[in-house]
Computed example of a mutant assay.
Amino acid sequence: MRWWKLLGLAGFVGVAATGVVVARAERRRRAYTPEEIRSRLRERITEPSGSDS
């Protein structure tokens, strides 16, 4: 029965770690100003794509 407890604890730690990663990525994404997002999108549109060859 003890290994069930360890498995449950490992699952809980995994879920918590995933939540931290998602929250950090969301914070980084929201840090951009609207003008920065527009300029990055324009750069993506104007750069040549490698799939045409």
Rank of each mutant, 00 (worst) to 15 (best):
G8P: 01
R42Y: 11
A10P: 00
A16P: 03
R29H: 08
A31W: 00
T18C: 10
L41E: 15
R38Q: 05
S51W: 11
A16W: 02
I45A: 09
D52E: 15
A23S: 15
T46H: 12
R40E: 03
V13C: 01
L6I: 05
R30C: 04
L41Q: 10
L41D: 12
R29C: 05
E47G: 01
L9G: 03
S53N: 12
W3P: 02
K5W: 04
K5Y: 05
T33N: 03
K5A: 15
R38G: 02
R42V: 03
V22K: 09
E47I: 06
E35R: 14
F12R: 07
A10T: 04
R28E: 13
R24C: 05
I37R: 13
A31I: 02
A17N: 04
E35T: 13
Y32I: 06
G11V: 05
W3E: 15
R44E: 13
W4M: 14
R30I: 01
S53Y: 09
L6E: 04
V20A: 10
R42D: 11
G14T: 00
R40M: 04
S51C: 08
P48E: 06
R24H: 15
E35I: 10
E26H: 09
R38P: 02
T33V: 08
R24K: 15
S39P: 00
E36W: 06
A17L: 11
A10L: 12
R38S: 07
G19F: 00
L7A: 15
I45P: 00
R42S: 06
R40G: 00
R24A: 14
V15T: 12
G50P: 04
G19V: 02
S51M: 07
T33E: 00
R44F: 03
